[in-house]
Deep mutational scan, measured.
Amino acid sequence: MTYKLILNGKTLKGETTTEAVDAATAEKIFKQYANDNGVDGEWTYDDATKTFTVTE
């Protein structure tokens, strides 16, 4: 399945997608991606749209 991440960081904003077997796997990938890019904030997930959002 395709999952989407919306980044609302102070210095980085944008979107990315990943292919993952489930939401938990996608979350791990996205949290590593956000960490690698210096984004740390409040996480939400919308199962209907398979979208994670992180807001600093």
Rank of each mutant, 00 (worst) to 15 (best):
K10Q: 08
D40F: 07
G41Y: 03
T25R: 06
G14M: 07
L5A: 03
T18A: 13
A34N: 03
A26M: 01
K28M: 12
D22L: 04
T16Q: 11
T11W: 15
G9P: 03
T53H: 06
E15I: 05
V54S: 02
T44N: 09
V54Y: 03
I29P: 01
D40S: 09
V54K: 01
Y45Q: 01
T18P: 01
K13T: 10
W43I: 04
E19P: 06
N37A: 13
M1D: 13
K31H: 08
D22R: 03
A20K: 02
T53K: 07
L12A: 10
K13S: 08
K31A: 07
T55H: 12
L5T: 01
G9E: 03
K10A: 09
N37P: 01
F30T: 00
K50P: 00
L12N: 14
G41T: 02
Y3G: 00
E19V: 14
A24W: 06
D36M: 12
N8Y: 10
D22A: 04
G14E: 14
A26W: 01
T25G: 07
T55K: 07
G14P: 05
K28W: 13
T17K: 09
A23F: 08
E27G: 13
T18H: 09
G14Q: 15
K50W: 12
N35V: 15
D47F: 07
D47W: 10
E27H: 13
V54D: 01
L7Q: 03
T53A: 08
K13L: 07
T11G: 11
G38N: 15
Y33G: 01
G9H: 14
N37F: 13
D47A: 15
D46K: 04
E56V: 06
G14S: 12
F52Y: 11
L12M: 15
K10F: 15
D36G: 06
T53E: 05
K13R: 12
L5F: 08
Y33R: 03
D36I: 10
V54L: 10
I29W: 13
E19H: 10
L12H: 14
A20P: 02
F52R: 00
T51D: 01
K4T: 09
K10V: 14
M1E: 09
E42S: 10
Y3H: 03
N35H: 15
I6Y: 08
L12G: 08
N8S: 15
T44Q: 10
K28T: 14
Y33I: 07
K28A: 10
K28P: 03
G9Q: 05
T53I: 05
E56L: 05
K50S: 08
D47V: 13
K10H: 14
E27A: 11
A20D: 03
L12F: 14
L12V: 15
A20L: 02
D40P: 04
T44E: 12
T44L: 09
G9T: 15
I6S: 04
T16I: 13
K10S: 12
T17F: 14
E42W: 14
N35K: 15
Y45P: 00
E56T: 05
K31M: 13
E42I: 14
K4W: 11
K10P: 11
Q32I: 11
T16W: 14
T25L: 12
Y3F: 10
D22V: 03
E42P: 05
V54W: 04
K31D: 02
D47R: 09
L5M: 05
T53P: 00
Y3Q: 00
Q32N: 09
K31F: 07
D46F: 04
T55F: 15
E19Q: 12
F30E: 00
A34S: 08
A23G: 05
A48Y: 13
A26R: 00
T18D: 03
E15G: 04
T17H: 11
N8R: 07
D40N: 11
T51F: 03
A26V: 03
A20G: 05
G9W: 07
A24T: 13
A24M: 13
A24S: 13
G38W: 06
E27K: 08
E19W: 06
N8Q: 10
K4M: 08
A34R: 01
T44D: 11
G38L: 12
Q32Y: 07
G38S: 07
T25S: 09
A26D: 00
K28I: 06
T51Q: 05
T55G: 06
V21L: 07
A34M: 05
D47Y: 08
D36Q: 10
L7P: 01
N35F: 15
T2Y: 06
A48D: 10
F30A: 01
G9L: 14
E56Y: 05
I6G: 02
V54I: 15
A24L: 12
T44M: 07
A48E: 14
G38H: 13
E42G: 08
T11H: 12
T2N: 07
T25K: 06
A26Y: 01
T18N: 03
E42Q: 09
M1F: 14
D40W: 06
D22Y: 04
T17G: 04
F52Q: 00
F30V: 02
T16K: 12
M1V: 06
A34Q: 02
E27S: 12
D22I: 03
E56A: 05
T25I: 07
V39N: 03
F52K: 00
N37R: 08
K31E: 04
T16P: 03
T18F: 06
D40G: 09
D40T: 14
I6P: 00
A24Q: 10
V39L: 05
D36Y: 11
A26I: 02
L7G: 02
E42N: 12
G41I: 02
N37H: 09
T25E: 12
L7E: 02
N8W: 05
D47G: 14
V21Q: 09
W43S: 01
E15M: 04
D46E: 07
A48S: 15
E15S: 11
E15F: 05
